[in-house]
Structure formats: C-alpha cells, structure tokens
Design a protein around this nucleic acid. Structure first.
Lengths: 207, 207
DNA sequence: AAGCTACCTGACCAATTGGTCAAGAACTTT
DNA sequence: AAAGTTCTTGACCAATTGGTCAGGTAGCTT
C-alpha cells in the first residue's frame, strides 16, 4: 500500500501529492470544520480527483489526523521556548509577541485548532491531556517561581496563559469580526495589536 | 401555515414546541456547528420527530437564523450597559465581570457565536457590519474620551474590547481545554478567572 | 523498448441527510 | 359531541457524501 506515513521510502510523487493534499485540506478544515468539510472540497482545492486523494489517505479522518498531529508541535513550540530569565516580564512579552505572529502567519492552523476544541476536541483530547497539559504545568510552575521571587506581580499562572492564548488567537479565529469592527481602514491591525498586548501584559505583570 | 414567526397569534402548543425545538437546537448547533448538526440530532434532543420539527420551522437554516437573531441581542446587552462614569476603570471592569458571567451562564450561546464567526460568519455578517459595528464604534468613542481626559491609561479602545471579548469568551469556547489544563481539581474556575481578569484589566488601565 | 510498478480516474455503491406528503390523532370551538 | 382546525408521523424522495474498484495511464528500471 502506498498510504502516506513516515516520510521514509516515499517516492517523489508521494511526497508532492500528500503535501498538496494536506495544504488544501488545511484551508478547507480550518474554514468549515471537520464535519462541514467534504473530500470533494479538498479535491477541488488541491486540483486532484477524489479517488486520487483516497489513494494517498485512508479517508477524511486520516487527513484530519495528520493535520492535527503536525499542528500541536507547531503550536506548543513558542511555549517550549519560554525559559527562565532575569527579566521575566520581557520573557513573557516575547512569548506573547511570538504567539501573535503565529496568529498572523498561520491563521489556518489557529482556526483548525479552534474548530476542534470548540466542538469538544473529540479527536485531540488525548493530546490535550498529554503533551499540552504537561507543558502547561511545567511553564506554569516556572511562572510561579517568578511570582514567588517577587519578580512579577502575584498572578495565577494558568489564567495568565489562558489570557495570552485567548487574546492572540482571537486575531486569527475571529478575523472576520476584527476586520468588520475595525472597518476597511485597517492598515496594520497586527502592529497595533502587538503594541496593545505588550502594554496589557506588561502593566499587569509589573511587581 | 403555522410556521413560527412573531409571537403574536400563536397557540399554546406552538409556543411550547418552538421553544422546545430552539432549546434543543441551541445545544446541538453550539456543539457541532451548523453544517455538523442534523435535523435528526435536533429531533432526538428535543424529543420530537423530524417532520414535526419541520412543521414548525421552514428548515434547518430557519432554526439557526432564529437562534442567531436572539443571540445578538443578548450578546450586545452588556456592552450597551457600559456608560459614562466618574470611575471608568470600575465601569470597564464591571463590563468584564458581566461578560465573564455570561460565558459561565450561557456557554452554548457563546459557542454558537464562535462557531459562526470562526467559519466566516456567512449567516451573520450583516449583523456584524450593522448593530455590532455601530455599538462598538460608540463605546470605543466613549473609552477614547476617558483616555483623552487622562482618566485611564492611553490604550486603543478597539483592541481593549477585543481583549475583553477574547479573554472572557475563552472560558466558554475553549471550555474543554481549560478544564483539561486545570485538571479535575478545578473547584471554582470562574471565581479565579474573575479575580485574574479584574487584575489584568485594572492594572493595564491605571493612568 | 519491454516490463514492472506506481499512479490516476470514471463509474459505481451504500449510508446519510434535508425535506415532502398524505393521512391519521389530538385539541378547540361551537 | 360534532365540526373544524391544528398537530403529528410513517413512508418516501432526491441530493449529497464517504468510500470502492476495475481497468487504464504514466513513470521508472533494466
């Protein structure tokens, strides 16, 4: 069977086509959710025929699963990156900025994740309970040490992380609303958002 | 035709059944999105038969439309409520609290809205461009007067509103993620969230 | 260029789903 | 309690959709 799995032992065509399919599927799933997307839509978006897509993937679920797996790595990376520092406020704000840049540069990934979690995370719950929870616990503990050392204001680390996730991803997930409210004259929404969020978190973290 | 519209001239049964259907549909649409929900699901959840549901509503779209219309009123009400005040920081924090209470008490409404906007707001765009934008502009102007008067820190009113919406609705929309990260021992998530958000916005608004 | 393998597709299938309809059941009105 | 209206449903339909398959085409190897 030629079904795509480990990148090992793949032909040129396999690599190209699976990537082409995943690229198209990301856009479709992000916009319509899992149930709202059809293989036909993915076929149209990727320029391949439906049977051809099913030649490379075992089904709709399989495509979605590969996307979600890839997603979580990318998604957690900025948080992994947050480390101990003499200037924890700068460290946290740098994380906010990185997260906001991801919302700007990878809005489809953000929406794919939002769609999944919004509908109860039926296919990604295990990943949330595993890697996500572990990493969050670790980083929350790190933030707590900053609090205990009096380097930042006493703040609940978990709720701080929630606020960061919510505010940054909002610009990707609620993009339509943001653009509508800001109107056409929305020259550099992300630049002003960056300034705003930097102020928001910097002010609330000052000891 | 007996199709439900203005509450005028409805029989007892019409009032009861339409409400029953809408109640069930809210839960279904909130959890699965429009495309992901089926009339059969709504039928099962409401205890009515499919043809019976279609006796009261012109179709799946019609049910969804009624829910969205009702939603926006409820949704905008807390913001309408925000008025000029001698203590604008308290006024804004009261709005945050009210918004968080809504996320707690009406999570299905929040998710219904999130699902819709996330997928490009195909059926509610006009409402966003009309009532939502007008109200937002009005309240942003109000916040701007507070800034100009030096009563609160210089802050972008629109991005402030986005941050409030994002952080509060996060607890309804990403409920699964929040509960997973906080673990079972999540006794009073909303109480601690309230404290956190109050600090977050109060600190960033101090002149 | 022959042969092998990987790749691709039109035609097809079964299940799901939005929606209809005729006819019967239940409620209201007189 | 009869008549008239409203309500309810089993059976049915057409369109959509996830997925299959036999057979043909293109690419690689020798």
């Amino acid at each position: 069977m030629a079904r795509a799995e480990s990148t090992k032992g793949q032909t040129r065509i396999q690599r190209e086509k699976t990537e082409q399919i995943l690229e198209a599927a990301l856009g479709v799933f992000a916009n319509y959710g899992f149930r709202g997307s059809t293989i036909d839509q993915i076929a149209a978006a990727s320029g391949l025929s439906k049977p051809n897509i099913l030649y490379y993937f075992d089904g709709k679920e399989a495509i979605h699963a590969v996307l979600l797996n890839r997603l979580l790595e990318t998604w957690l990376e900025p948080l992994e990156h947050m480390a101990d520092s003499d200037t924890p406020i700068d460290e946290i704000c740098a994380y906010v900025t990185r997260k906001l840049e991801m919302a700007r540069d990878f809005p489809r990934e953000s929406r794919l994740f939002a769609n999944e979690v919004l509908q109860g995370a039926p296919r990604i719950l295990a990943e949330l309970e595993g890697p996500l929870k572990e990493l969050t616990d670790k980083k929350a503990a790190l933030i707590q040490t900053w609090v205990d050392a009096g380097k930042i204001a006493p703040i609940d680390p978990y709720h701080l992380l929630f606020s960061i996730w919510a505010t940054t991803q909002h610009y990707a997930d609620f993009d339509v609303q943001v653009r509508t409210v800001l109107g056409k004259c929305n020259s550099d929404c992300f630049a002003s958002a960056q300034k705003h969020l930097d102020h928001l978190f910097r002010a609330s973290l000052a000891p």
